[in-house]
Nucleic acid binder design. Sequence first.
DNA 1: TGAACATATGAACATGTATTCATATTAAGG
DNA 2: CCTTAATATGAATACATGTTCATATGTTCA
Lengths: 116, 116
Amino acid sequence: MEKDRCAVTIIHHDLIKRVEDKMISDSEAVDLAHFFKVFSDPTRVKILYVLGVQEMCVCDISYVLDVSQSAVSHQLKILRQARIVKNRRDGKVMYYSLDDDHIQSVLMKGLEHINE
Amino acid sequence: MEKDRCAVTIIHHDLIKRVEDKMISDSEAVDLAHFFKVFSDPTRVKILYVLGVQEMCVCDISYVLDVSQSAVSHQLKILRQARIVKNRRDGKVMYYSLDDDHIQSVLMKGLEHINE
DNA sequence: TGAACATATGAACATGTATTCATATTAAGG
DNA sequence: CCTTAATATGAATACATGTTCATATGTTCA
């Protein structure tokens, strides 16, 4: 990918300089995209939403969302790996909850936006 | 998909009732997921980030991000359709900018989260 | 220990998506 | 008008992703 694809015809050299100075790094952009990707699936959104109400076990979530136990479990794995939910075991039952308050506040920002 | 997959063994009938009352609708979950999906790609994140600094044209964006003009244009189409960016034409040049302030505030919430 | 239950997980499949390539559209200037 | 520049777009491709199905793991209790 050559940097000069528009070199002759670039419109605003000064603006480009300004933006380049403030530019986020590749890895920041990738991390940020990863973070938001977690919220980009309806099943995960619902899971996060109900966990925002209260801690729940896998079977309860599966029932409330009407999604198979396996599908829920797979999604919870993704949420765990992204450190967006945490879990605790009580006997056979595994309880899940939101890992921190940022999560709900991001969800709410999104809801604000779509309800306009 | 049967609703009774856990009917015999559900742990918390009371909690489930409470959650069901507060549950978001399917369409809300889908809309919300769609909204966040826009932020789930590094190229789009970068585009939104630079447009947060200032209005820019396609060629400038392509240069700053080191992404082909075509790829940028395709992503801008997605952002336009999601009403997350707006554009204005000035002769041959098309300028893009963020459609409203929610966008940047969502981005910033995300950045806060990953920088912890 | 063995049966029953809650959860996790790997493989397979179908669908979605980001980029590239080639080409179309739109506008300005000669 | 004809060329050139800026942007848009359709098709193709490669890759990611969500669900299902079958099965494994871990825990309780008789």
